[in-house]
């Protein structure tokens, strides 16, 4: 079964990769009880911050209106 070395902010552990066949070197994975269960989608991870920027811009626009 495929395993991989996962860096948890400085602590490295061997993690079972059976459930993330798509995982490649350099990916971020979500790990639970020794198993990676999801590969983090980086584009989705940034979405909320773009979304917040839009809310900010919108609020700024309202404030500037007379």
């Amino acid at each position: 079964m495929r395993t991989g070395r996962v860096d948890f902010g400085g602590v490295t552990k061997i993690v079972n990769l059976a459930y993330v066949p798509e995982a490649a070197i350099g990916d971020h994975v979500l790990v639970h009880v020794g198993f990676a269960i999801s590969v983090i989608d980086e584009a989705e991870a940034d979405r909320i911050f773009h979304h917040l920027q839009e809310i900010d811009d919108l609020a700024g626009g309202e404030a500037a209106a007379p």
């Binding site: 459930y19 993330v20 066949p21 999801s38 989608d41 979405r47």
Partner: peptide, 18 residues
């Protein structure tokens, strides 16, 4: 789905099969 960076609509098919 707020947690789309980790959650796919169909979940993890390999895990669900086992």
């Amino acid at each position: 789905n707020q947690y789309a960076r980790a959650v796919r609509t169909d979940g993890n098919g390999t895990a669900r099969a086992i």
